[in-house]
């Protein structure tokens, strides 16, 4: 009996669906974000003198790249239907653990410590979600507190600062006139895009996020794939920790916390659905860029700091609403 009804609904949805699927709904969402970046850019170029300067544009990109490094791992987790609230605390702890080694002149040892600790946290998150079957939000939220507590304990209220210049170049240096973190963003973006678009793993992540039960009943090893994304998310927190450490030239137990909400905002502004199965790392790169531009623009326009969160909230709502309207009624319900 539902056959006929569904056919009627399908026919109703057809015209919009027809042009969307020719272009691909993913591409429509990305084009919309590129348009948004252009629009914000034009507004800021016309309303401020400083925006279009090379130094400022590179600064915006550097801000975007720092957020993106954390946000890229989170994007994969959310696409696969999970969540990772522990990324910023993971960054804090890895940075704090690595700081002493780096300061004493062993940057490679420091890097190994940061990446080892962050990946270990990813493995624990993955086990909590797959083996213990904890809801991802809960498991990683608890992990956030645990990591933050370890960082407090380890640092004892002190900070470690003053790293060798060679290490600091990772966060502050330029190569051919472009900030080093921007290259990192490019490499990570390319790798993650290849991973999602050109490997079986990537395809499976989207299927798992779209419908975990169906993915499991299609023979996809859901547990192993989820473990993988939490490990990748942890690894990205470790990489971001090193870049951030090099940029701010200091480690303290509060360094990661202010990043968490902006990073989530970047992912969502980038068009990744909290319900899983929809989104892309490229979208997140654009989302981080939009967010960095908005914050930069507000600073240039002398908008007071206390107004800035409100504006970010409005941008986030606008981006998500635009996606919903573009996708049409039928998908919104599902």
């Amino acid at each position: 009996m539902s056959g006929l009804r569904e056919r009627a609904l399908a026919a109703e949805a057809a015209p919009r669906e027809r042009w969307r699927h020719r272009v691909g709904s993913e591409n429509v969402a990305l084009a919309f974000r590129i348009g948004l970046i252009a629009a914000i850019g034009i507004v800021l170029a016309l309303s401020t003198d400083a925006f279009l300067s090379t130094a400022n544009l590179l600064n915006v990109l550097r801000q975007a790249s720092l957020m993106f490094l954390l946000a890229s791992g989170l994007t994969l987790v959310i696409v696969a239907g999970g969540f990772d609230l522990s990324i910023a605390a993971n960054l804090t702890l890895s940075a704090c653990l690595a700081a002493a080694a780096i300061k004493s002149g062993s940057p490679w040892l420091g890097a190994a410590i940061a990446l080892g600790s962050s990946v270990a946290v990813g493995v624990l998150n993955g086990f909590a979600v797959t083996l213990l079957r904890l809801p991802p939000f809960l498991a990683t939220y608890a992990m956030l507190w645990i990591l933050q507590g370890l960082a407090f304990h380890y640092m004892g209220g002190l900070e470690i600062y003053g790293f060798p210049a060679a290490f600091r170049a990772l966060g502050t240096g330029f190569l051919l006139g472009i900030p080093v973190p921007v290259y990192l963003m490019g490499v990570v973006l390319l790798a993650a895009t290849l991973f999602t678009r050109a490997t079986n793993f990537g395809q499976e992540l989207y299927t798992i996020g779209a419908n975990r039960d169906a993915a499991r009943l299609s023979g996809i090893p859901v547990g192993k794939r989820l473990l993988l994304v939490y490990v990748v998310s942890g690894l990205m927190a470790g990489i971001a920790a090193l870049v951030f450490l090099a940029r701010v030239n200091a480690a303290d137990s509060g360094m990661g916390e202010p990043l968490l909400l902006p990073v989530i905002a970047a992912v969502l502004i980038g068009g990744t659905s909290l319900f899983g199965g929809v989104g892309s790392v490229l979208g997140t790169a654009l989302g981080a860029t939009i967010l960095a531009m908005v914050i930069n623009g507000m600073n240039l326009l002398d908008i007071k700091a206390q107004w800035q969160p409100l504006v970010v909230g409005v941008v986030l709502l606008a981006a998500v609403l635009a996606d919903l309207m573009g996708r049409g009624r039928r998908e919104r319900i599902g």
Binding site: A210, N211, A215
Partner: peptide, 13 residues
């Protein structure tokens, strides 16, 4: 719908 298909994904996927 709940166990056979990922409805958000394409026919091909």
């Amino acid at each position: 719908k709940h166990e056979g298909l990922a409805l958000k994904r394409s026919t091909q996927d």
